[in-house]
Amino acid sequence: MTPGTRRRPLPAALTWTTAVPVLALVVLAASWGRDLPTAVVVLVAVVLIGAVLAAVHHAEVVAHRVGEPYGSLVLAVAVTIIEVALIVTLMVSGGDDTAALARDTVFAAVMITANGIVGLSLLLGALRHGIVSFNAEGTGAALATVTTLAVLSLVLPTFTEAESGPQFSPSQLAFAAVASLVLYGAFVLTQTVRHRDFFLPVAEDGVALEEDSHADPPSSRAALTSLGLLLVALVAVVGLAKVESPAIEDAVAAAGAPQSFVGVVIALLVLLPETLAAAKAARRNRLQNSLNLAFGSAMASIGLTIPAIALAMIWLDGPLVLGLEPTQMVLLAVTVVTGVLTVVPGRATRLQGAVHLALLASFVFLAVNP
């Protein structure tokens, strides 16, 4: 290359963000349903991490094209759809031993999003920018919706009397499923149509910002390509997580943790793309984008997963345990109270981030050592 010349960018087909999702699908097809040696398990884990990073990239491309708050919905809904497929697959293969898998996975997703993603975003944003600002009206509405969905689907089954144990009767489950869909639909309508400005990033003076000013949005063709590759990457992430699940189960058993912790590990893995995307937005002082991702993911995890599982129970045999245990209900209650105190001012410091991360650490610790 002669002095003064510029290196041409690689064609899209040669970039790692394009190649890794395709490679992950190939690895998934080659490893599915097979007993893998340790070296191959490690290789699958590396490819899995690459697929997660690729998913983050393509989600950001799509989000930048469609703008907020629509962009935050893309990754939340896509991950939730794949999460439902993973839960149903494990329930089919696990029988009665997986009766509480949906509850454990959904509750883990709520704790990871409402404490982990929120806390990490607040901490990273405050460390770089001092005090971070967000729209309290939109974020408060999202937190209220998440709280209602969580109580309706995960707390009430513990106290109902139609079925023995923390379960809904068929009619109660149908009601919870319909109510969850209605609430989620109402929130999406509010977020994207009626009060879209409540969910846009805000400047220090509280004025809503429409778009990032530092870069032009990608073309429609690039956004559609990224959307397709995002779906491919997410399918690969969940599929490879399923391939890795026996190794995860063995590791959990070797550590002496309860088997329910497998759902926590899988939820952590599935939510990693959203976590990385939210962290990046927070470092760019776009905390509202991070909160949209966090609470939108929690909402979709309940509002879409519970109805889908309820529908799947028509064909699945065995019980469906949804009611939380006492320790889990305490953690949920503290998370809601802390979330309200964080959201109401519309401004936060690194202290609020540390508090939410402490709650996440408590959840993980108690999941390992109940």
Rank of each mutant, 00 (worst) to 15 (best):
Leu123Ala: 15
Ala150Asn: 08
Val155Phe: 11
Val66Gln: 11
Ala136Cys: 02
Glu161Phe: 09
Phe134Tyr: 15
Ser133Ala: 15
Leu86Gln: 10
Ala78Trp: 04
Ile131Arg: 12
Ala162Trp: 10
Asp96Met: 08
Tyr70His: 09
Ala162Arg: 07
Gly138Met: 09
Pro157Gln: 07
Ala63Cys: 13
Ser171Gly: 11
Asn115Leu: 11
Val74Asp: 00
Ser171Pro: 03
Phe107Ile: 09
Ser93Trp: 12
Ala63Trp: 09
Ser169Leu: 04
Arg128Tyr: 10
Glu161Leu: 13
Arg128Thr: 11
Ile117Leu: 15
Leu124Thr: 08
Val74Gly: 04
Gly94Glu: 08
Thr139Phe: 06
Ile117Arg: 01
Ala99Tyr: 07
Pro166Gly: 02
Val79Phe: 11
Val106Tyr: 07
Gly94Lys: 08
Ile87Trp: 01
Phe159Asn: 00
Glu163Trp: 05
Thr113Met: 07
Gln172Ala: 13
Glu161Ser: 15
Glu68Ile: 07
Val151Glu: 12
Pro157Gly: 11
Leu73Ala: 12
Gly71Phe: 08
Asp97Phe: 09
Pro170Phe: 14
Gly140Met: 04
Ser121Arg: 03
Thr160Ser: 05
Asp104Ser: 07
Val74Ile: 15
Leu86Ala: 15
Ala108Glu: 04
Leu120Gly: 10
Val118Gln: 01
Ile117Lys: 02
Val106Thr: 13
Ile112Val: 13
His64Glu: 15
Ser153Cys: 15
Leu122Val: 10
Leu90Val: 12
Met111Ala: 10
Ile81Ser: 05
Thr98Gly: 00
Glu161Cys: 03
Thr148Val: 15
Phe134Leu: 01
Ile87Asn: 00
Thr147Ala: 15
Glu137Thr: 15
Ala108Val: 07
Asn135Leu: 03
Leu124Pro: 04
Ala85Trp: 02
Gln172Thr: 12
Val151Cys: 09
Leu122Lys: 01
Glu137Trp: 14
Leu101Trp: 07
Asp104Phe: 05
Leu101Glu: 06
Ser72Val: 08
Gln172Val: 11
Ala85Tyr: 07
Thr89Phe: 07
Ala100Trp: 01
Gly71Val: 05
Thr89Gly: 13
Thr160Leu: 10
Pro157Arg: 01
Val79Cys: 06
Met111Thr: 03
Phe168Lys: 00
Pro166Leu: 03
